[in-house]
């Protein structure tokens, strides 16, 4: 058993102590379920107007979407590594990985903004049609989560640099990381539903 597993299995069977704290997990469930409800409504609307949805979906750029997915997943990897290094007491590496996470998050926002600007240039706004109302609302809310996540990570980054956390005391870092991973989770639902399947 590695040291990491030791730390984690300490809290193994306690319902009130999921990794990162109970509040963030309540939030994660709320968010995931909210997006699932929205996507179910989206799927229902699509079944009633398949042609229009297919046409609108063809106007999206799946390549940009795929690149963005990879960027987001990689940032998630670096965040997971940052937490792992912190647990192992490697503070310097943890700080560096957190920084990479933030930068990749900013790349995600940049690519998304480029995609948005293209849509606006073509006059496709919030009220273009039902598909794009959902597109803007869902990706917009996701983007807001990513932005909030970056703000949280920046706070964590500076606290880490000041040496506020160490191998023993790092629950806030875990909570922030969980929030960041939540953005990945939501994107795992949004991306195929909006960009890929029909």
């Amino acid at each position: 058993m590695s040291s990491e597993q030791h730390v984690l299995s300490r809290e193994k069977n306690d319902i009130l102590h999921p990794p990162g704290g109970i509040l963030i997990w309540i939030l994660i469930f709320l968010e995931v379920i909210t997006f699932m409800i929205a996507l179910s409504v989206f799927a229902y609307m699509r079944s009633r107007n398949a042609a229009m949805f297919a046409e609108s979906q063809a106007m999206l750029n799946p390549l940009l979407g795929t690149v963005n997915t990879i960027v987001l997943l990689s940032s998630g990897y670096f965040m997971a590594e940052a937490v792992r290094k912190l647990r192992a007491g490697l503070l310097k590496l943890s700080v560096r990985y957190t920084l990479v996470t933030i930068l990749l998050g900013l790349v995600f926002i940049a690519i998304k903004s480029f995609e948005y600007s293209q849509k606006i240039e073509h006059g496709i706004g919030l009220e273009y049609n039902t598909f794009f109302t959902f597109y803007w609302l869902l990706t917009g809310f996701h983007l807001i989560h990513v932005s909030v996540g970056i703000v949280i990570l920046v706070f964590i980054y500076f606290s880490l640099r000041k040496g506020r956390y160490d191998a023993r005391d790092h629950e806030d870092v875990e909570t922030g990381a969980a929030f960041w991973h939540m953005c990945d989770l939501i994107w795992m639902l949004l991306f195929p539903m909006l960009y890929l399947i029909n």
Binding site: P19, W25, L73, H181, D184, M188
Partner: peptide
Amino acid sequence: LVMILFALKFFIISYQYMGLRFAHPFW
């Protein structure tokens, strides 16, 4: 198939990155 692939990714992130595999069965 695509949906299943994305569900698998969902599980990889939550179980591996978020440490859900060490959490209480309830979660």
